[in-house]
Write a protein that binds this DNA or RNA. Structure first.
Lengths: 340, 340
DNA sequence: GGCAAATCTGTGCACGTTCACAGAATCAAC
DNA sequence: GTTGATTCTGTGAACGTGCACAGATTTGCC
């Protein structure tokens, strides 16, 4: 059982020095591209490195430097995220690009099971990364506790749970985006515009309603807002049914999410009305729902790559010792399809 | 510029020892749960750890242990992969689950730009991971070179480029899957079954044709095979047009990929025939194409999570010093939708 | 040739941990 | 009370690197 790996010993800086007939210090200087190494020494060292097959040991370097040039990227609840949400990949790439420019390595750590949580927490606390980016953080979690306790430079994508001491966070501008798409709906000639608002107990839900109200200004009519509890298809369908009964003359609807919008379209079609001829519908998120409806949804797209890049920028700033903004809000794009 | 981080010094095992009035060795034994630490010492150490806020430094441990309990997971060409291919997420999770069970940390490293390549190669060679899983490896790449040169325990998902020294690889059973779906096509009553074969110069393409031939046995007819160069929509459409001219009495088609199948369906509809009533069509991959066609494609689904899990198993075996199979072939599932 | 500056080199120490070993204390048995 | 095993503890060395410092050598200049 478990036989000793007996991995052939790796060459060290010492072996190179011996082979090249110089000292450890000189080899170290050559490897790190410092000044003050003679041409003769350089050649000897180059030959020696090639001969013994030397590669620097990063673990040893990390230990003495107290720095790793690496940033962790933590993904929670990967099943739902990876499979359904195309955004996570974009966020990942956006962050990687920015970190790469700053010559930092990004290590994605996946938290799936309970075991993962503790192991990742150990990994972070072990000094293997200088900072960390966290998406969809959970409220009471060993990972976030470790980040807090060690004051590990961190940036959250989305609102962090609780007060984040040494962390910034980057979110999308829900208010602005909601206002923007509502305004565009008005510009297409819609006069009586309603909203199926969802999850008003959460920031995102409340903000989207606020943006809707802001865009309409004086034209805002409380009676045309139908609140539903969840960002779901069925909630959207039921909410839209109620809204149509109350206001049959509606000609435009802003749904708080694509799933809600898909439900709303279903409800509209039930009454014999057509989308977008009778009623224009817009959603939010540009999720998979947006392409499943007929016609396809006009909706708000998150700047996913931007979220990742911005989170990376915030972490890098903290790494330099700066104190960046605690909160960054990003604007969203609108994708115009057939539904409005 | 770049002010010193001045991070408050982390507590070490030495600080704990001082605080608890015992020696480093005893603290180390306690932390690692070894035998031979008295109740009195244990209590003192626990209190001391809580007081000074000690967390073990993994970098130092890695250095002396020559082992990290971590495995790298390398993703090439992430743009196309993450955005279009849902499989990559599943592979990731499958691998993570298996590694997690073995108490190993998985670190996903993304190779996007040229800079990434070198940095990741450095990361791997630095001894920060014990082994590595590589998806979609490229032919001549610093990463694969490092893996080869250091004889880093590795497992490839898909065929590795060139001869892989210390590596295994895991692939899907193209022959078996092709035979299987062809057989199912026959069972639905199709009599004259053709194939739009693609990329016969690649293993995957040749194997899928071989499976097709195997399933048909004596009923195989060379004339009903139309080879096209690429796994593309347009190649599928053009190939199917030719095939239909040559064999108008066809009632079933196996397309070498979903994209090819989508093109084939287009060509079939051009002639006024219907799918699946006149001609049944099956594809391969269960990609996004499969749901875009009308009717939706019956196709072969890769056991993505299984690929990841198996790759993880192979790496773990090598880590233990075993010499696992050089190649592992996994069976595929068939998803039966409307197209056949 | 003398002197200062610039360039080059080697040595010891530190980083924080684990491990082997030696020694101390406790216990059991006669 | 001696012996021997068992349990517990402390110490020094090692892992492979970077850095400060001291010393050696070369260069530039008058």
């Amino acid at each position: 059982m478990t036989t000793k790996p007996t991995r052939s010993k790796r060459a060290t800086v010492h072996d190179v020095a011996l082979e090249a007939g110089v000292s450890r210090g000189t080899v170290s200087r050559y490897v790190n591209g410092e000044r003050y190494v003679s041409a003769a020494a350089r050649e000897a060292i180059e030959a020696a490195i090639a001969k013994v097959g030397y590669v620097p040991n990063t673990a040893a370097r990390n230990l003495v430097m107290q720095r790793t040039q690496a940033v962790g990227f933590i993904v929670h609840e990967p099943h739902s995220l990876f499979v359904e949400d195309p955004n996570i990949g974009e966020i990942l790439l956006g962050a990687n690009t920015r970190l790469s420019e700053a010559d930092h390595q990004m290590a994605v750590l996946i938290v799936d099971t309970e075991r993962d949580t503790d192991r990742v927490a150990r990994y972070l606390s072990g000094g293997l990364v200088d900072g960390v980016i966290i998406v969809s953080a959970r409220a009471d979690d060993p990972v976030t506790r470790v980040v807090d306790r060690l004051r590990l430079p961190a940036a959250y994508v989305g609102h962090p749970p609780g007060a984040a001491g040494s962390a910034s966070f980057v979110v999308i501008d829900n208010v602005g985006a909601a206002a923007s798409i509502t305004r565009r709906l008005m510009e297409t000639g819609r006069r009586r515009i309603g909203m199926v608002a969802a999850a008003l107990d959460r920031d995102s839900g409340a903000d989207r309603l606020a943006g809707f109200r802001e865009a309409l200004g004086d034209a805002f009519d409380e009676a045309l807002v139908e609140p539903v509890p969840l960002y779901s298809y069925s909630a959207g369908r039921d909410g839209m049914r109620r809204l149509l009964e109350r206001a049959p003359d509606l000609d435009g609807v802003f749904a708080a999410s694509d799933a809600v919008a898909a439900g709303a379209i279903e409800a509209i079609k039930e009454t014999g009305r057509s989308v977008p001829d009778d009623i224009g519908v817009v959603g939010f998120d540009d999720s998979a729902w947006a392409l499943r409806t007929t016609p396809a949804l006009s909706t708000v797209r998150q700047p996913a790559a931007g979220l990742g890049a911005e989170a990376a920028r915030l972490v890098l700033a903290r790494l330099r010792g700066d104190e960046p903004a605690a909160e960054v809000r990003l604007d969203c794009d609108i994708v115009w399809r057939g539904s409005a």
